[in-house]
Design a protein around this nucleic acid. Structure first.
Length: 275
DNA sequence: AGGATATTTCCTGATT
DNA sequence: CAATCAGGAAATATCC
């Protein structure tokens, strides 16, 4: 397990990751975090609420399940609590997705080292979970506080074993046709919903109304591009995609204010209470 | 294989 | 002036 990548952070901090694909394919995957992980961070029972949240995101992502299809508030707990849930608890908390989550956490509980050598579940090697939203556009010098990393290390826990994938009863209706995972609006929403990982990229203007504003438009575009394995993404292009959402009412128009958008009636999972 | 969906890419023109 | 906003058109990438 070439935990190498030591300098992954450095490169991320600088600006790099965008250019050439930092994600060829193959085992590589696990990034620099691995080496920075504290033993606790690799053991679910010691996870913070945030890490639990992150684990959820990863499992959903790997299974290409829409993030809005699970009641996140049911998992507003730390790792200790999470680990004490029974299979039935998972069913109650996540319905048909319960088995998947249960299996994942069970695996993790049994292997505090899951993050090592997992690089090749037959899943795409595209997991960029380990990226704590490096802020690309930052001009050299003003990188985002490295201390943030200590908050979101976990990252690498690529939900363990390959068999997790399909082993359990395949809940039906679990995923639709996504042009490669998450939709743009969901990607944006998730950044918004995860302040710890949002080093000033996007900010809520009006939380209850669903109004938000891009603070670092190009950085967000770079991140989006990274997720789509497209290093030439720009805000110009990303915004075109955003504008298409108006018609579908996933976004509502907010004119006059530059870089400001608002979630529409067809955007789900962004409200504090909802879902 | 082919259509549908969701962007991505490009572009011209208007605003801020 | 540079950055955005607006959309139309056409090209792509995935999905099913």
């Amino acid at each position: 397990m070439s935990v190498t990548s030591s300098t992954a952070l450095d490169s991320q901090l600088t600006t790099t990751w965008g250019p050439t694909n930092s994600y060829p394919d193959g085992p590589l995957v696990m990034s620099g975090y691995t080496s920075r992980l504290w033993p606790h961070e690799s053991q679910p029972q010691f996870w913070s609420k945030y890490q639990v949240w992150e684990w959820l995101q990863q499992v959903l992502d790997i299974h290409q399940i829409d993030a809005s299809s699970i009641p996140f508030q049911n998992f507003d707990m730390d790792g200790h609590q999470l680990c004490s849930l029974s299979y039935q608890d998972f069913i109650r908390a996540a319905g048909s997705l319960g088995p998947i989550l249960f299996h994942s956490i069970t695996e993790l509980k049994w292997s505090g080292q899951y993050h090592v050598e997992i690089g090749q579940l037959d899943l795409k090697p595209e997991l960029d979970y380990s990226c704590p939203f490096p802020d690309v556009s930052f001009p050299p010098g003003e990188i985002y506080d490295p201390s943030l990393h200590s908050l979101a290390p976990v990252a690498s826990p690529t939900p363990s074993s390959p068999d997790i994938k399909r082993s359990f009863s395949r809940p039906h209706q679990v995923k639709k046709h996504n042009p490669r995972g998450t939709h743009l609006w969901e990607f944006i929403r998730d950044i918004l919903l995860n302040p710890e990982r949002n080093p000033g990229l996007i900010k809520w203007e009006d939380r209850t109304e669903g109004v938000f504003r891009f603070l670092k438009s190009e950085a967000v575009a770079q991140l989006w591009g990274k997720k789509k394995n497209n290093n030439s993404m720009t805000y110009e292009k990303l915004s075109r995609a955003m504008r298409y959402y108006y018609k579908r009412e996933i976004l509502e128009r907010v004119d006059g204010r530059r870089l400001v958008y608002k979630f529409g009636r067809n955007a789900r999972g962004w409200r504090e209470s909802e879902k």
